[in-house]
C-alpha cells in the first residue's frame, strides 16, 4: 500500500527526516513512537502534502502511484486521510456541509456519482454513532467551539465518513481523557479491515492498549531506528527512549 524509501525532508531549511524507510501493507496497523522532535508529525505532514515541508530526497509510493507528484487534495482523494493533531476551526461552515463537499469531491475523483441527500444523512447517522458524536455537533460549524475531545472524535467521525485506504492518526490521543480515548479507539477499531491500513503516531503506549498495532517503530532523529511488535511499545513505556538513543550512539 505505502512504501517510503530513504525519505529526507526539511522545513525552513532545517533537516527533519533523514533517510526514513517504511513499508505498510493493506490491513496493517503501524504505530510510530519516538521522543519529541524526532520527526513524527513531519512524517504525517509530508504524507499529507503540506507545502512547507520540502522533500529533498527519497520516494513515496502509494498504491503504485508516486505520492510526491500528487497535490494534497489528490492524495486525499486517492484515500489518504490525516487525523490532525490540532483540528482546525472553520466558522460558519457546518460540519455536515463540509463533509458533504469532501465526500462528493472524493467520489467525483473516483468516477462515482454525487451522494444523494438521503444516503448522506443515513451515512451521517450511522457513522456518528461510531464515535458517539452528538447530532448537534454534526450540525455545528466545523470544530468551532468543540472541546478538545470533541475535536478528536470529529476527526475520527470524518475518517469514518470518508472511508480512506490509509489513515494517519497524528497524536489523536493527546488531550483525551480515558473515556474519550476509548471512544476514539473503538471508532478506529470498527474501521479496521483487511484493505485499510493505519499509521498511528503517539507518545503513549496507552493508546496501543486499545488500538493494537501489528508493528511498532521508533523514530529518532528522522529515521526509524527500531521496529518490533506491540511489545516494543511496552518496553518503551517502561524504559523510556534513552536506551535507544544510546544504541544509536554506540552504532
Amino acid at each position: 500500500m505505502l512504501t517510503i524509501k530513504n525519505l529526507y525532508s526539511t522545513i525552513d531549511s532545517k533537516q527533519i527526516l533523514r533517510g526514513l524507510n517504511l513499508e505498510v501493507k493493506p490491513g496493517e496497523v503501524h504505530a510510530i513512537m519516538g521522543p519529541n522532535g524526532s520527526g513524527k508529525s513531519t512524517l504525517a505532514s509530508v504524507l499529507a502534502g503540506r507545502e512547507e515541508y520540502e522533500v529533498t530526497d527519497g520516494e513515496i509510493a502509494f498504491n503504485g502511484k508516486n505520492l510526491l507528484e500528487l497535490a494534497p487534495e489528490d492524495r486525499a482523494r486517492e484515500g489518504i486521510f490525516l487525523a490532525f493533531q490540532y483540528p482546525v476551526e472553520i466558522p460558519g461552515v457546518s460540519n455536515i456541509n463540509f463533509l458533504k463537499a469532501a465526500l462528493n469531491e472524493i467520489r467525483n475523483y473516483q468516477g462515482k456519482e454525487q451522494i444523494s441527500a438521503k444516503d448522506f444523512l443515513k451515512l451521517v447517522n450511522e457513522k456518528s454513532k461510531l464515535v458517539e458524536l452528538d447530532g448537534q455537533l454534526t450540525n455545528r460549524s466545523v470544530n468551532e467551539g468543540f472541546s478538545g475531545g470533541e475535536k478528536k472524535r470529529n476527526e475520527i467521525f470524518q475518517m469514518a465518513m470518508l472511508e480512506p485506504k490509509l489513515a494517519i492518526l497524528d497524536e489523536t490521543d493527546s488531550g483525551l481523557d480515558i473515556d474519550a480515548l476509548r471512544i476514539v479507539a473503538n471508532g478506529v477499531n470498527a474501521m479496521r479491515s483487511p484493505e485499510r491500513s493505519f499509521i498511528v503516531i503517539t507518545h503513549y503506549q496507552r493508546l496501543l492498549d486499545y488500538i493494537v498495532p501489528d508493528f511498532v517503530h521508533v523514530l529518532y532523529k528522522g529515521r526509524i531506528v527500531k521496529s518490533g511488535s506491540k511489545e516494543l511499545a511496552l518496553d518503551l513505556e517502561a524504559k523510556g527512549y534513552d536506551w535507544i538513543k544510546e544504541e544509536e550512539v554506540t552504532q
Binding site: A48, E73, A76, P87, V88, I90, A102
Partner: peptide, 12 residues
C-alpha cells in the same frame, strides 16, 4: 491551516 485542512479532505 484552514485551507490545508480542506485540501486534506479532498476539497480543492
Amino acid at each position: 491551516d484552514q485551507i490545508f485542512y480542506c485540501l486534506q479532505r479532498g476539497i480543492d
